[in-house]
Simulated scan of single mutants.
Amino acid sequence: MSAMDTDEVSVVLPPTTTSGLALSLHPLPILNISDHWTRSKLQKNAVDPFILGALLGTQNGREVEIVNTFELAVIGEDNALVDHEFLVSRRDQYKQVFPSLEFIGWYTVTPRPSVHHIALHEQFTGYCSTPLLLILQPSLALVSASSSDVNAQTLPFKAYEPTIELRDRKSRSVYIEVPYNVETGEAERIAVDWTARGGGGGTSLESHLQTQRSAVKMLHERILLLIKYVTDVIAGTAKSDPTILRSLVALLASLPASENKHFREEFDTEYEDVQLTAFLSSLTKSTNILNDLVDKHILLTSGKEDRGGGGPRRRMRQGVPGDWDRFH
Rank of each mutant, 00 (worst) to 15 (best):
T16S: 12
R172H: 03
E186T: 14
V82A: 07
V249G: 03
S171L: 10
V233Y: 06
Q93E: 12
S247T: 00
L155Y: 03
V88M: 01
Y107A: 15
L248Y: 09
T211D: 14
F279Y: 13
S144Y: 02
L52M: 15
P131H: 14
S148A: 06
Q318R: 04
E270L: 13
Q137L: 06
I30E: 04
I66G: 02
I75S: 12
V192D: 07
L31G: 04
A250K: 09
L280C: 10
R189T: 13
V64A: 11
L13N: 00
G319H: 07
P179M: 05
V143I: 09
D168C: 04
A119T: 13
D306K: 07
E63H: 15
E8K: 03
G199H: 01
S204N: 08
I75P: 06
N288I: 12
G310E: 01
T69K: 13
L81P: 00
P15Y: 08
H121T: 07
F267E: 07
P49M: 14
S173G: 00
F263V: 03
D268K: 04
T110K: 15
D92A: 12
A235M: 04
Y180C: 01
H208R: 10
G308R: 07
I223Y: 06
L21T: 01
K261G: 11
T203W: 00
E221R: 05
D295F: 08
E85W: 09
F279R: 15
R112F: 14
A238T: 03
A187C: 03
H117C: 08
E85T: 12
I51W: 06
I66R: 08
M316K: 11
L209C: 07
S204Q: 01
G308A: 08
S2A: 05
V320G: 03
G198Y: 09
G126R: 01
I66A: 11
R90Q: 14
R313D: 09
G57Q: 09
K228E: 06
S286E: 08
R213C: 15
A73D: 15
I223N: 06
N60Q: 10
P256F: 09
A145K: 13
L280Y: 11
G199W: 02
Q210N: 07
T17D: 02
